[in-house]
Design a protein around this nucleic acid. Sequence first.
DNA 1: TGTAATTCCGACAGAATCGGTCGTATACTA
DNA 2: TAGTATACGACCGATTCTGTCGGAATTACA
Lengths: 152, 152
Amino acid sequence: MLKLTKKADYGLMALKYLAEHPETVALSAKDVADAYGIPAQLLAKILQLLTKHGLLRSHAGMNGGYALARDAREISAYEVIHAIDGPFFITSCTKGTKSCELTPSCTIKEPLARVNETIAGVLKSISIQDLAEHEHPAGRARETQGLVELTL
Amino acid sequence: MLKLTKKADYGLMALKYLAEHPETVALSAKDVADAYGIPAQLLAKILQLLTKHGLLRSHAGMNGGYALARDAREISAYEVIHAIDGPFFITSCTKGTKSCELTPSCTIKEPLARVNETIAGVLKSISIQDLAEHEHPAGRARETQGLVELTL
DNA sequence: TGTAATTCCGACAGAATCGGTCGTATACTA
DNA sequence: TAGTATACGACCGATTCTGTCGGAATTACA
Ligand code: SF4
Ligand code: SF4
């Protein structure tokens, strides 16, 4: 139910971690996994996905690892989710293959498609940088403020 | 992955259908199920859930069925989802029971909680009425417009 | 009073998705 | 050449989701 997968969750954590260590050339999957207690092999696969989608740059071999492919503020949460979990749809229709078979009779897929766009917009408006900035427990620091318009 | 369950989907369809038939006193689960091709017994259980949460009023026996408990514009998509799928959380933490065990080390749950609130806000701003109004294929009719604010 | 329609409820099974592991191949560095 | 790290695919157990079944309680109506 409208829930992020843990893989996406882990991916966001990892990217944030990388964003917080800009000085290092590259961090290995294991480094990041250990920092949070994420299963290392699983995170490795996630980082590979992110690399394949151009969000990270990887380097094999000793002292290898991963680094952000662009500035943290140019990577949106939407991209991360999309890279890890595939196309973003809140409904089962529009899902390319295997759409729900009552698509023809369904009368709410249109409005839901707009809801989908709205939520996607929210996700697109959030950058890794935004996640990293808010260490501050009390959020009294400069606040990123996005305005999302919903037109049904 | 950030996807509506089919139950919630069906629930929304059913409520919309009820909203479109205000003249009838009550419609049986089977009536609605047949109208769209939804498995009848499954829809029955869904409608029962919605009843238990006060979104519908039910009446057993012959000529019984379900009717909206309030005006269609007073019922939000959020309530429907909440009634059917339970508490709304995009993350696995904050989920009361069985939270993800790396909640302590996790540094993104705070920002994600705000994203959660934002999306919940989007859902709350959508009423059954909104869904029902937009039969019009080309959405050039009066548009419902909500503004959702995202503050990370 | 009896019967049909209908809600109500719990249990359950099959399917799909998800989380995580393993094994191996490949690439890079020293 | 040895060691470190990514790359990739197969696989499996756990969980969640979808849908079905069976039966009990309610109500209308003949
Ligand atoms: S078609 Fe209607 S029911 Fe089927 S998935 Fe899309 S929205 Fe949900
Ligand atoms: S704690 Fe962090 S990792 Fe665990 S669910 Fe919440 S957000 Fe995801």
